[in-house]
Nucleic acid binder design. Structure first.
Lengths: 246, 246
DNA sequence: CGCGAGTTTGACAGTGGTCAACTAGCGTGG
DNA sequence: CCACGCTAGTTGACCACTGTCAAACTCGCG
C-alpha cells in the first residue's frame, strides 16, 4: 500500500454507509445535480459510497464495465496504455466528475486515485434501468458526456498541434479555470499529480515538463512552493503563451 | 465554388423534400436507428433533408449551434483552429454519423464537406423538445455520444504517444475496419480526404504523411491506385506497425 | 541522519518539421 | 486535340524541438 493512505486497498472493498446523497457535500455539477427530491431518492437507493486510498486502481482498461462512479472527493487520473507501456492520460477527475463511460461493455481506460478519494458507485445495470424511468437523469448524463466530448476535442488540438510550452501553459490555465469555477480564486492551483503524469497527459516527457516549468518560473510567470501547489503570477502572459501569441 | 460540385453552395440553402426518413437509405446505425415507427415519424417531422457540395462549410466553430445533423451520404471533415492557423482535425464523418454536439450553445468545431453530401438537419430547440417526449431517442443519442467519446480517447493516445508510422497505420486500419463494418470487404478503402487533411488528423505534416505512405508502398504493405483509393495488402503487418510491434 | 522516490539539469541524438524544388494529374481554353 | 496552368502530392536537404540517457539534487520519511 502506498504511503500515507489509510483508506481501503481496492475499490470494491469497504462500502461505507449506503450513501444517502445528502452526504455528497458537492453542491456543484454532478450527476445528482438538479434532480427532483424524488428522483434523487431513487438514484441514492442504487448507489454505494466508497472510499479508496491514494494509488489504488479504481477501474482497469478492458475490465467488464459493471459500475459507474461519481467522484465526490479527491482526484483521479485516467489513462490508456500501449502494449509496450507507453501511457496517455485521458483526463484528471475532481469532485463532481463522472467516471465509467464505456463502449461495448468494457472500460476504455484505467483509473487510479491520485489522493485518497470518495466516490459514489452505481451498478451499471441498475443505473440503466433507472435512466429509462427518469428522463431528467438521462438528459443530465447526456449533457455531461457531451461536455466531456468537447473537452476531449480541445485536448486533441493540444496534443496534435501545440508546442511543449503551449501545452504546459494550456494545462495550467485549464486547472486554474476549474479551480476558479469552484472556489472563486484561481491563481493558486493544486497539482496532485506528478510530473510524469502531467507529461503523459500532454504527450511530453517528464523532463520536458520539468524544463518548461523551470522556464516559466525563471520568467516570473509562475511560482512553485514546495508542496503540491503552484501559483500563477502573470495570467495574461500565460494565456498568450498557451496559444502561441509570442 | 469548387470544381465538379453541382450541389448547393451553403448548408442552409436548398432544403429538399421535407425528408420522410424513408429516403435515408442508410440502414445502419444512425440517429433514427431502432426507433418505433411512431417515434420515427415524429423525428422525421422536424427534420429537413439537405445537400451540400464538396468544399462547403456546413458549420463554423463558434457559430451559434442552432442545428444538429445526421449524415446520410458523402463524407465530412471536422476541425478546430488555433489563432495562427494551425489546424487539428477532430474527426471524419461518414453516413450514419452525427454532427453538431456542442457545449454551451456554440459549435466546438467546424465541419466541411469532403465530397457532395446529403444530410438530415434538425433544429436544436425542436430536437431537444422531442428528446423529452421520446426517451428512446435520448438513449440512442447518449450511446452515440459515448461511443464518440471513447473514439476521442483512442485518438488522444494516438496523438500523444504514437510515432508517425504508428499513426498512419492506425489511421488506415480504422478506415479499413469502418469499411468492413459497412461493406463486408475492408482491404480496399477510399480516401476522400487529402494528405494535409490526414496530416492534420494525425498531428503530422503533409510531407510526413506522404513519406510514410511511400515507405509502406515500398514495403508492399499497401498499394495506391491513382484515384482516391488505397489497398491494404498485408493487414497483419499493418496491425503490428500500428502499435509499435516491430 | 540517511535512504529513496520524484524532480531537475545537462549533453547528445533522432524523429519529424521546414523550406524548396520537382512531378503528376486534371480541368480549362486556345 | 493538345498545351497550359493550377493544385495536390512527392522527394530531398537541413535543422530544431523534444526525447533519451545519465547524473545530481531535493524533500519527505523512516
Amino acid at each position: 500500500m502506498r504511503s500515507g493512505s489509510h483508506f481501503a486497498q481496492t475499490a470494491s472493498s469497504n462500502p461505507l454507509v449506503n450513501s444517502p446523497c445528502e452526504k455528497c457535500n458537492i453542491a456543484e455539477m454532478s450527476l445528482c445535480h438538479a434532480l427532483s427530491c424524488d428522483d434523487l431518492r431513487k438514484l441514492s437507493s442504487i448507489s454505494t459510497g466508497i472510499e479508496v486510498g491514494k494509488g489504488v486502481t479504481i477501474i482497469n482498461e478492458m475490465d467488464s464495465a459493471d459500475f459507474l462512479f461519481n467522484v465526490t472527493g479527491g482526484s483521479i487520473k485516467l489513462y490508456k496504455l500501449l502494449p509496450d507501456g507507453r501511457r496517455q492520460m485521458t483526463g484528471f477527475l475532481f469532485p463532481g466528475d463522472f467516471l465509467g463511460i464505456a463502449m461495448n461493455d468494457c472500460y476504455a481506460y484505467s483509473a487510479e486515485a491520485l489522493e485518497d478519494c470518495r466516490l459514489c458507485r452505481f451498478p451499471r445495470a441498475r443505473l440503466e434501468e433507472l435512466l429509462k424511468e427518469v428522463p431528467d437523469l438521462e438528459n443530465r448524463l447526456l449533457n455531461m458526456v457531451s461536455n466531456e466530448l468537447v473537452l476531449a476535442q480541445d485536448q486533441m488540438l493540444l496534443l496534435g498541434r501545440k508546442t511543449a510550452i503551449e501545452k504546459v501553459c494550456s494545462f495550467l490555465l485549464s486547472l486554474a479555470k476549474r479551480t476558479q469555477r469552484k472556489t472563486g480564486a484561481g491563481h493558486v492551483i493544486s497539482l496532485p499529480m506528478g510530473r510524469s503524469d502531467i507529461g503523459d497527459y500532454l504527450g511530453l516527457t517528464t523532463e520536458t515538463v520539468s524544463r518548461t516549468l523551470t522556464n516559466l518560473k525563471k520568467k516570473g510567470i509562475i511560482s512553485i512552493p514546495t508542496n503540491g501547489q503552484l501559483e500563477i503570477n502573470d495570467i495574461e502572459e500565460l494565456t498568450d503563451l498557451a496559444e502561441g501569441m509570442d
